[in-house]
Nucleic acid binder design. Sequence first.
DNA 1: GCAGCGCATGAAATCGATTACATCTGAGTC
DNA 2: GACTCAGATGTAATCGATTTCATGCGCTGC
Lengths: 338, 338
Amino acid sequence: MTARARIKDVATLAGVSTATVSRALSSPDTVGPATREKVMEAVKATGYRINAAARDLRQRRARSILILAPDLSNTFFGKIFAAIQEEASAVGLTVQISDSRIGRDRLLSLGYDGRADGIVLLDGGIDPEVVNGWKLPLVQLSEWNDAYRAPRLGIDNRAAVGLAVDHLAGLGHRDILHVSGPRDNVLAVERQEGLVATAAARGMRATVHPGDFTMEAGAEAARHWAALADRPSAVFCASDECALGFISECVHAGFDVPGDVSVVGFDDIDFADRFLPALTTIHQPRAEMGRAAAARIVRMVEGPGMAGDDGPDVETLEPMLVVRSSTGAVQARGAARG
Amino acid sequence: MTARARIKDVATLAGVSTATVSRALSSPDTVGPATREKVMEAVKATGYRINAAARDLRQRRARSILILAPDLSNTFFGKIFAAIQEEASAVGLTVQISDSRIGRDRLLSLGYDGRADGIVLLDGGIDPEVVNGWKLPLVQLSEWNDAYRAPRLGIDNRAAVGLAVDHLAGLGHRDILHVSGPRDNVLAVERQEGLVATAAARGMRATVHPGDFTMEAGAEAARHWAALADRPSAVFCASDECALGFISECVHAGFDVPGDVSVVGFDDIDFADRFLPALTTIHQPRAEMGRAAAARIVRMVEGPGMAGDDGPDVETLEPMLVVRSSTGAVQARGAARG
DNA sequence: GCAGCGCATGAAATCGATTACATCTGAGTC
DNA sequence: GACTCAGATGTAATCGATTTCATGCGCTGC
């Protein structure tokens, strides 16, 4: 019991060949019932567990998928990781995880060393040469990059923004400040462009303040907003964290939300509905996104080949506007609250 | 370029044996400079990348560590995962991740299939037979279980609770409600016992309300608190999420925090300081915890054997009390605020 | 001039499974 | 009773690296 048992030990104990043991374990119906029984007993007696490296080498597959995300600690990803892992585990795949910003060479290796046989990529900012260099099934989730030759999956960000703008318009707002995300981030760009376009279409004024999705960026934007002579009555933040930072800073500065300014976030992270005020935001179905991406990559991995006949190039999930308490009807200019 | 290059292809192209290629790549100083050069060129020309399964099989190690946590989506874990992955990646290890509640057999396999050569376990609630059955280096992080034969690492929860109680005592509070975590969770037990003991030592009254670390539990506790005839002036929640749920529900019910009740959390999650009011809480150095655990497991994995001479059985990190705005001096009974 | 040494390299065994192919057995067919 | 065929099992090749051991070569020192 000291050293791990190998298949050979099981075979010896059961009085059969290793081939039979292998078959008894992976396709039980191809061996006789008596033999199967003997093998199973020997397995139990030896405590045998398969050596994955040996099997992976021979079968040229790893039964494992890799998740790559730009920042593992981002609250947004938690539910997605959990959902992917759950789906994967259900079909017997293990999950590797890595920050996608670990350096070109390390990154290339990850997709190339045979340890994973599929990748879920949550980062649209990787050099396309690296991504397209991986010879592995790949799905893009949430973020994307048109230069990657891989299907993608996520919500319709423009539609989402539309929901938010319509909501604000309905409350009488005519002037929106958008706190954007990083200029090189697809999501940020998409949301910003969507906002500008939709606002224009509704005859609203829209200004953009740069940010980077973080609470600190939101807080900074709040200071900027507070210093404006002509303060927009509504703010649309490119992420919930940013919105929380914005509100927090506003309140500290003595403003009331939504009395003085209505704030809309994006993502619907877990805290959104417990925040004070509860945050009006765009709900992204993160668990569903994770599940769908996992299901897709599993299909690609288990499927015949990287043919790509396993689904549409773009799978769109429905975003939802969740109206809570951080937005309200626009107040008359200069009127005190209460 | 269509099929992956193997070491043999590189060897042929460079006009050397596979042994030499292997040596040129893994211990460059053991081959002649000219040869090394030829090999490197051949590697570049063929686009060769090592096949991890083959190497793992031969070397009987996987260059990978496994993280097991009871709920991957828990906000608390994000920073820890990120830190572990960063440390691991720096020394060339990949990271696998799995929910630790995936079922006994699957779990056993994870620690047994040779895919990982070390485990960071964030769950003290797994059957000790399973854990001790793994023949792998293991470190316990945050949660622990005395039945596991493995070093553990985390903050001193009792000391942490002491900080919180002293803080509340200093503000004049004499009566604390503790919203606990699950009864079968070490952290919950430790914090609860610590609180009861410390409160007694300070001559304070302490009552315990059951919970499970979640926001919903906090909200439920708030409703319970609000219904009490003799409401404790301070509440200590076993987690930040719980505290946020508590505060949120209190405020919705018309109470003021900290005017009507002071609330202390535990963990110092990222939102704690942006919450309104900003949450007084125990700071857990999560990144540092992750780094330390990773460093420890790396030492155990790279080290001579599972001898255990690679550090103390219990590594304790310092918790810190972060005083923010959710706690304040106790008010006279029945006095209105302001 | 030769033993002895160290260095660079190659041949072949090895890690532990899966699987193509060969073999054997026994039942069914005519 | 010989022949076929299917099902169960064994033999050995295979996956792609690493590593042990052997070999050849050039130097040094006596």
